[in-house]
C-alpha cells in the first residue's frame, strides 16, 4: 500500500482498524484495573458494614479540605487531558503539547497535596500499628489500613500517569503526532480519566462518612 501511514503496523489492514484494536485493548486493560481496585473496594464494603461507627469516627480524622482540593485538581486535569486530545484531532500540535504539560503539572500538584496530607496524617498518629491514635476504637485501624493502601496505590497510578504523559509530551515535541495519527495520546487519556474515576469514588468513601456528626 503506497498511501499507508508510517505508524500502521503490518498486522493491520488500515489505520481505523488499528485504532479500534488499540481502543478495545485499552478498555480491556482498564477492566482489569477496575477489578484490581475492586478487591480493595470490596474489603472496604465488607469492613464498613461490620464496623459502621468505627469507620465514621475514623473518617472524621481525614482532612476533608485536602481531599476536596485534590478532587478538583484531578477533575480539572481530566478536562485539560480531553482538551489535549481535542487539540491533537485539530492538528494543533502546539496546544497539544501545552495541554499535556498542564495535565502533568496538575498531576504533580495532586501528589504534592497528597504528600502534605500524608505528613499531617502521620503527625496525628493515624498510621495503624502499636502507636495508632489511642482515642480511636481499635477497628478504626481497619479504615486507616484501607486509607493508606487505596490512596497509596492510587498515588502510584498518578505517578505512572506522570511518566506516561511525559513520554507523550516528549514524542509530541519530536513531531510524532498529527491529526492523522494520535492514538497514543487518546489511549493515555483513557488511562488518565480512569485514574480520575477511581478518585471520584475514593473521595466520598474516605472523607465524607457521616460528616454531620463530627
Amino acid at each position: 500500500m503506497a498511501d499507508a501511514h508510517a505508524a500502521l503496523q503490518e498486522q493491520f489492514e488500515e489505520m481505523p482498524q488499528q485504532k479500534e484494536a488499540a481502543t478495545l485493548g485499552m478498555w480491556a486493560f482498564l477492566a482489569t484495573e477496575v477489578l484490581f481496585f475492586g478487591a480493595m473496594f470490596m474489603s472496604y464494603i465488607a469492613y464498613r458494614n461490620a464496623y459502621p461507627h468505627a469507620f465514621a469516627e475514623a473518617s472524621h480524622h481525614t482532612i476533608v479540605l485536602f481531599g476536596t482540593v485534590n478532587t478538583a485538581i484531578l477533575l480539572t486535569s481530566s478536562l485539560t487531558m480531553a482538551l489535549a486530545v481535542h487539540a491533537a484531532r485539530e492538528n494543533n500540535i502546539k496546544w497539544l503539547f501545552r495541554f499535556l504539560a498542564i495535565t502533568i503539572f496538575l498531576a504533580l500538584a495532586f501528589l504534592a497535596v497528597k504528600g502534605l496530607e500524608y505528613r499531617e496524617d502521620l503527625r496525628e498518629h493515624l498510621w495503624p500499628g502499636p502507636h495508632f491514635k489511642p482515642e480511636l476504637p481499635p477497628q478504626a485501624q481497619i479504615f486507616w489500613v484501607l486509607y493508606w493502601i487505596m490512596t497509596g496505590v492510587h498515588a502510584l497510578h498518578v505517578t505512572v500517569g506522570v511518566g506516561l504523559l511525559s513520554t507523550m509530551a516528549w514524542l509530541t515535541s519530536r513531531r510524532k503526532f498529527s491529526a492523522d495519527y494520535y492514538t497514543p495520546i487518546e489511549m493515555s487519556g483513557l488511562y488518565w480519566h480512569f485514574v480520575d474515576i477511581i478518585w471520584i469514588f475514593l473521595y466520598p468513601l474516605l472523607y465524607l462518612i457521616q460528616r454531620y456528626s463530627s
Binding site: W27, A28, L30, A31, T32, E33, V34, L35, G38, A39, F41, M42, I45
Partner: peptide, 11 residues
C-alpha cells in the same frame, strides 16, 4: 461495561 459488571458480581 465488562469491568463494572464483574465488579458488581464480586460485590
Amino acid at each position: 461495561i465488562a469491568g463494572l459488571v464483574w465488579f458488581l458480581i464480586m460485590v
